[in-house]
């Protein structure tokens, strides 16, 4: 992240340390993760100890301290999705991508994530690939979708 970009974000939040969460959210949205160098700068600018920023960054699920893959695959593991088979979809993806939730494949192609509920329970079980919702998934359809064979109810959202 360039100095000017960070400057813009800090200004938007009045350079206020109490707005730290919103500032980190904006950095995450722009960079897809929280680069160490940027966090060090934020720490110095707002006079917030780096340990406190680290505390926040590891506490909240939305933040990542490592770069994420080109594609983010998110399996909803909310209760409705769970009782409709989300666990088996997640297992299939773990096996296929050879990563655990929260990890990125070695070729930086995919990051596998879980989310606790997206409130689209009528579409359970739900998988989100790069922000696109794919509802009423099956373990096999999600794999063929990753391989580029588009199946299932895929809609922009």
């Amino acid at each position: 992240m360039t100095g000017a970009q960070l400057e813009k974000i800090l200004k938007k939040h009045d350079n206020q340390s109490s707005n730290i969460l919103a500032i980190l959210q904006d950095i995450q949205a722009s960079e897809n993760y929280l680069p160490r160098k940027t966090l060090e700068e934020v720490s110095q600018r707002l006079l917030v100890p780096l340990t406190q920023i680290y505390h926040l960054a590891t506490f909240y699920r939305t933040f990542s301290l490592t770069p994420r893959g080109r594609h983010v695959v998110t399996v909803c593991t909310g209760t409705a999705c769970h009782v409709k088979g989300a666990a088996s979809i997640l297992n299939n993806l773990e096996r296929e991508l050879k990563v655990q939730p929260g990890e990125t494949t070695t070729n930086k192609e995919y990051t596998l994530e879980t989310v606790n509920c997206l409130g689209s329970c009528a579409l359970a079980p739900l998988v989100v690939i790069d922000g696109t919702y794919h509802g009423r998934m099956l373990g096999t359809t999600v794999l063929s979708m990753l391989k580029g064979e588009k199946k299932g109810a895929s809609k922009k959202s």
């Binding site: 689209s120 009528a122 919702y133 809609k155």
Partner: peptide, 11 residues
């Protein structure tokens, strides 16, 4: 709404 969007309402 988000539910209908997931089912393709924006299309």
């Amino acid at each position: 709404g988000t539910g209908c969007r997931g089912a393709g309402a924006l299309d």
